[in-house]
Nucleic acid binder design. Structure first.
Length: 425
RNA sequence: GUGGGCGUAGCUCAGUUGGUUAGAGCGCCGGGUUGUGGUCCCGGAGGCCGGGGGUUCGAAUCCCCUCGCUCACCCCA
């Protein structure tokens, strides 16, 4: 066995018990918030037909696909959950009662270079609302996100949401610099999405690159970059067409967010477009206000994806939040818990003759739903108590000769040190 | 892909004018007597010093190569 084979492949993680307890803590919150919002959990295979993920917009996520040929099939590890969920929806499209409220927690794979906060696999909480064209769906999604942050113990001021509308940007551009070249809109969004990362000048260069996918005139590109600097709806309105439906939708969304009491946690930001090609309307992302991490979640409306995959025309809103970035943020804020093992009882036979009784006791306690470890050896009692301490057990139940004769166990409460007898059955 | 930093015990790390049997803390195991933990005291196990080659009487230490980790840049939902 080579040394390499004894390590997890680069960008992947092993989860030891303490790591998995933390992950489970996080997933428990994903599930609990999903439950409170009445989302139903679904799951899909981690391997899909590569075709499901391929789109034409120069997206990073597609370039980073883990894919391979097996016999005559071209397969891929999923890079995101949304296409799989869309596929599942299509399969049952005829019998669905809309709107559908689904969520999934799944591992996604992207072959990318490792840096801080970026691994090649990560788990994502994915929430989708399908069949609702109104921004009431977006409001649900955003409320679920802030509820999750609160549940995780993230301070209210530590994380915020940025919201924009691709539909608004499209309205503005369709009547202007992209007139007659609507196909350039998706690649334009991919470029614009990099604004926070590579800066306005670099975006300008890429938009104006004659050999690039967008190929705007330099002045037009400059106009686009300027338009993206809007940070309020009123500012954005000045560039929008009169009676813009997209602008009206944004205004209505903020009204709804206000009703949920979270409008003050959401900013309008014209530069947010998200990098995925399939978004068509409202888009949003969560970010840490300290600005040290990449976006911690993102999503938006994708009204055309399901139809483009061969399904019916179904409006949809969804978002994903990964485990890696949010864990880093929690760590930086000192909010990562260290969940214990949750063992209730350690049952200790003091000698082998007492073992059958101890087993009977352990079985009874387990039958009552308690988490019980049975000491498998018969070392000294001192060691057993130290072990109980280490695993965080609340009680130690000792079965010795004297107790056995009376049909009881001596129960020691680890926290108080108090002891009493308890019948074995 | 470019550049920097780092690979020494399970973990976090000391350890250079090159010099005996390579260290600490934590963790682990055992002991401090007979059936009672967390503290304390004592003891112990555990390391081809990432790998290979070279220089040297002698290399964890210097040189070269290589692998791995990591950070920055490049790139990038």
């Amino acid at each position: 066995m080579s040394k390499d084979a004894l390590r997890p492949p680069r960008g992947t993680r092993d989860f030891y018990p303490e790591d998995l307890r933390l992950r489970s803590w996080l997933f428990d919150h994903f599930r609990e918030i999903s439950r409170r919002f009445a989302f139903e959990e679904v799951d899909a295979p981690i391997v899909e037909h590569a075709e499901l993920f391929i789109r034409k917009a120069g997206e990073e996520i597609v370039d980073q696909l883990y894919h391979f040929e097996l016999h005559d099939r071209h397969l891929a590890l999923r890079a995101e959950l949304t296409p799989s969920l869309a596929r599942m929806l299509i399969a049952r499209a005829g019998g669905l009662r809309l709107p559908v409220r689904w969520f999934a927690i799944g591992q996604n794979w992207r072959y990318e270079r490792m840096t801080r906060g970026r691994t090649r696999e990560h788990y994502q909480w994915n929430v989708e609302i399908v069949g609702e064209p109104d921004v009431t769906a977006e409001a649900e999604a955003l409320a679920a996100l802030t509820s999750l942050w609160d549940a995780l113990g993230l301070p209210r001021e530590a994380v915020r949401l940025r919201v924009n509308s691709r539909a608004l940007l499209e309205e503005v551009l369709r009547g202007g610099v992209l007139r007659g070249r609507e196909e350039a809109f998706a690649p334009l969004c991919v470029v614009v999405d990099k604004l926070h990362k590579i800066g306005a000048d670099a975006v300008l260069d890429q938009l104006a690159d004659p050999a690039g996918p967008v190929g705007l005139a330099r002045d037009d590109a400059r106009w686009v970059v300027d338009a993206l600097s809007a940070r309020s709806l009123d500012e954005a309105a000045s560039a929008a067409p009169p009676d813009s439906p997209a602008l009206a939708a944004l205004r209505r969304l903020f009204e709804l967010l206000d009703a949920y009491g979270i409008a003050d946690r959401v900013d309008f930001d014209a530069s947010v477009v998200r990098g995925l090609a399939y978004y068509t309307g409202i888009v949003f992302e969560g970010f840490d206000t300290a600005g040290t991490l990449r976006s911690i979640c993102g999503g938006g409306r994708y009204d055309a994806l399901i139809e483009s995959l061969g399904g019916p025309s179904l409006p949809a809103v969804g978002f994903g939040m990964g485990d890696v970035v949010v864990s880093e943020l929690l760590g930086e804020l000192g909010r990562l818990p260290s969940p214990g093992r949750g063992v209730d009882d350690l049952v200790v036979p003091l000698d082998d003759a007492r073992r059958p009784l101890a087993m009977r006791l352990a079985a009874r306690l387990r039958g009552e739903g308690r988490s019980v470890e049975l000491a498998l050896g018969t070392g000294r009692l001192k060691r057993a108590l130290a072990h109980a301490n280490r695993i965080g057990a609340a009680r130690v139940l000792i079965v010795g000769e004297d107790e056995a004769a009376r049909g009881v166990a001596k129960v020691r409460d680890l926290a108080s040190g108090e002891e009493h007898d308890e019948k074995i059955w």
